[in-house]
Design a protein around this nucleic acid. Structure first.
Length: 499
RNA sequence: GACCCCAUCGUCUAGCGGUUAGGACACUGGCCUUUCACGCCGGCAACACGGGUUCGAUCCCCGUUGGGGUCGCCA
């Protein structure tokens, strides 16, 4: 391995469903590495003990594999710069944290969360940017060490210069300057002994010999902290390349409230992986001729980082669907398409589960089509008037359905049993009989008042499609105004606890 | 609010000092067709604004406006 090997990484944190934004970052990192005969690395950033989960890591790995973006080094494949899961690298981080403290670049901070929250509030009010008042920065090291030894709870913060300007280079944007005064003494080790992102990312990128950091624009503001850490350690920083953020229709950062963002949703909808990849590729990049349909291989051959355009692209489902249609029409024989369809939804396991729910209602084999269409549709038409809850109007119905949606979002296991329990509980709390409560859901999920058992249907459809359909139903009913939504959320939180 | 980033049709984008500002999605008119879709032909539609620089600015510089992001013991 020579020193100028191109090495890129995807560094997702396993804290939720696999996100299309992650796929987008993965694609560009992957393509840049492959273009240069380099190495693409998967590193799991699970330094948040509260939120990280193994299921999420598994789901992310699974969807990246589905997309066909295989990594050369990673937690499952190994590699010579492992481990590739940050929770398994704690000793490494401690070594560097201790070094920083010893050299006076970092210090223990004993401030309480309460104090920090107060300071933050105050500063926010006065409009000045940074949060921390640096109260512990000047505690004499010996005294600080004594308090640490005595078992007092502490975090470690890095010492950021009080004045001057940090200048760094972004491959796409050129020079970026930021005053040190606008940056506070960032925590680099939490009270639980885990490093924060900022420390871990610098240490790992250096030790893993990452040559290019290709990631979302949202990170630009934390680059100075990272640059400073590179300086403290005497390391050469990699090339920084910040991609634009994928956007909702209203131009805000792509979010699940406004858009389907889970890769699984696209998969369940029957978007082909090659189309999704192609589509992500045309967000900010294009082939030099005007061809919009291109393969991963073609992208690799023609890709140049410096050609990426910076306007935040809106993730337009219509165009994705058009592209997906082209793949279906142009790239598959009927036979091949049949294979894909079987693989997607007609395989024994999936179709078998569906059949199980409607077997009892069949009088002849030809019934299956009508009985199961809800399992093989994307957005289904919902008759609005049948959506209404018994004795309620649109506004009231929306509120109840919104609460159901929030509750469903909190569920970690999307099984029919846990969904049933959730509805039973909700029926009591809202004082609505279960059969009335589920009635609009049948319409939302199946488009029919009489259909396969609701909870089974939801489980088979999966949480992504289920949630999307409920969202469509709310939309159909006329949506909640921002103000009403906030009010409802407040009431909901007091009734059901923080979500 | 402070700071950072960004700015071509509604959307994805081409353009890199002189173009009738090009393509694609969406919308739309027509052709093809047993219907629909596909396909083909056409239409609608953009350089945010104001100053410079220049013989000449979509393009370079500055400002304004607009949009986005960041301001966590989350990443």
């Amino acid at each position: 391995m020579t020193d100028n090997t191109i090495r890129t990484r995807l560094a997702p944190s396993p804290t939720g469903d696999p996100h299309v934004g992650t796929a987008y970052q993965a694609l560009f990192n992957y393509v840049w590495a492959k273009k240069n005969n380099g190495i693409f690395i998967l590193r799991i950033e699970d330094t948040d003990r509260e939120r990280s989960s193994q299921e999420s890591e598994k789901a992310i790995i699974d969807s990246l594999k589905w997309l066909g973006l295989e990594w050369d080094e990673g937690p499952d494949t190994g590699g010579s710069y492992g481990p590739y899961r940050q929770s398994e690298r704690l000793e490494i981080y401690h070594e560097y944290i201790n070094k920083l403290i010893a050299e006076g670049h970092a210090y223990p901070c004993f401030c309480s969360r309460k104090h920090l929250a107060e300071v933050r509030m105050e500063r926010q009010k006065s409009g000045s940017g940074s949060g921390y008042d640096r109260r512990c920065r000047d505690i004499p090291p010996k005294e600080a060490a004594k308090r640490v030894d005595a078992g007092e709870e502490f975090t470690v913060r890095m010492k950021v210069p009080l004045e001057g300007t940090c200048v760094f280079e972004d491959l796409l944007r050129g020079k970026i300057e930021k005053d040190w005064a606008s940056i506070d003494d960032q925590v680099i080790m939490k009270a639980d002994g885990f490093p924060t992102y900022h420390l871990a990312v610098v240490v790992d990128d250096h030790l893993m010999k990452i040559s290019h950091i290709i990631r979302g624009e949202e990170w630009i503001n934390s680059v100075p902290k990272h640059v400073l850490l590179y300086q403290f350690f005497g390391w050469e920083p990699p090339v920084f390349c910040h991609l634009p953020l994928l956007r909702n229709k209203d131009k805000s950062k792509l979010s699940k409230r406004k858009n389907p963002v889970s890769i699984n949703w696209y998969r369940k909808m029957g978007i082909l992986s090659e189309a999704l990849l192609n589509f992500a590729g045309m967000m900010g990049w294009h082939l030099s001729d005007d061809r919009e349909k291109f393969s991963l291989q073609e992208m690799i051959e023609n890709f140049r980082l410096e050609d990426i355009s910076l306007g935040g692209p809106v993730f337009d489902l219509d165009k994705l669907l058009w592209l997906n249609g082209r793949y279906i029409r142009e790239d598959f024989t009927t036979d091949e398409l049949l294979d894909r369809l079987v693989e997607w939804g007609l395989n024994r396991e999936h179709f078998g589960a569906i059949l199980e729910t409607c077997k009892g209602r069949m009088t002849c084999l030809s019934d299956w089509g009508e009985l199961t269409d809800q399992f093989f549709s994307g957005r289904i038409p919902v008759p609005k008037d049948e959506l209404l809850l018994k004795d309620m109007d649109e506004a009231q119905t929306i509120e109840v359905i919104q609460i159901i949606l929030w509750e469903l979002e909190k569920l970690d296991s999307f099984s029919k049993d846990s969904i049933y329990l959730l509805f039973k509980d909700l029926s009591e709390k809202l004082n609505i009989k279960l059969k009335y409560l589920t009635q609009p859901l049948y319409i939302a999920i199946s488009g029919k008042a009489v259909s396969t058992p609701l909870f089974d249907t939801m489980e088979i459809l999966g949480k992504d499609i289920t949630r999307a359909r409920i969202r469509y139903a709310i939309e159909e009913l006329g949506d909640l105004s921002k103000k009403k939504l906030k009010l409802l959320e407040k009431r909901y939180n007091s009734l059901f606890g923080e979500s």
